[in-house]
Amino acid sequence: MSTADTEQAYDPRHVHSHHHPEGEAHGTFKGYVTGFILSVILTAIPFWLVMGDVLPSKQATVFIIMGFAVVQILVHMIYFLHMNTSSEGGWNMLAMIFTLVLVVITLAGSLWVMFNMNENMMPVSAHEMRNAP
């Protein structure tokens, strides 16, 4: 690569003749539209389930909307954030897996510990609760 080549002004028209510049989105129109349509469906169904009171069991509704949330998060990561195992030499994925481990420990640990603490607290009557400062 000559000095003239490296020092020339950046010309976006020639971007694909070199390498991808760092951070260039690898998305396509089709990818974004697919992600968007999937997201709309995955958002509309949970809202419909809750607002329309479709299922008789609340427990089932909770599990289903949680499932939809997980799937939609994956859709966003694939189609909008362009996550894959090889971006940044795999460090992106590694950092995310590490973060997910911390997130699971934080969420599950907090809920578990605090639920048990709550169970073992002295019972408070509704009357005491109302007169609490």
Partner: peptide
């Protein structure tokens, strides 16, 4: 969600310069 896809379109136009 709409703002997400319009940002995606901005990125696609950026790739085209």
């Amino acid at each position: 969600l709409l703002s997400s896809i319009t940002y995606g379109f901005a990125m696609l136009e950026m790739a085209r310069g």
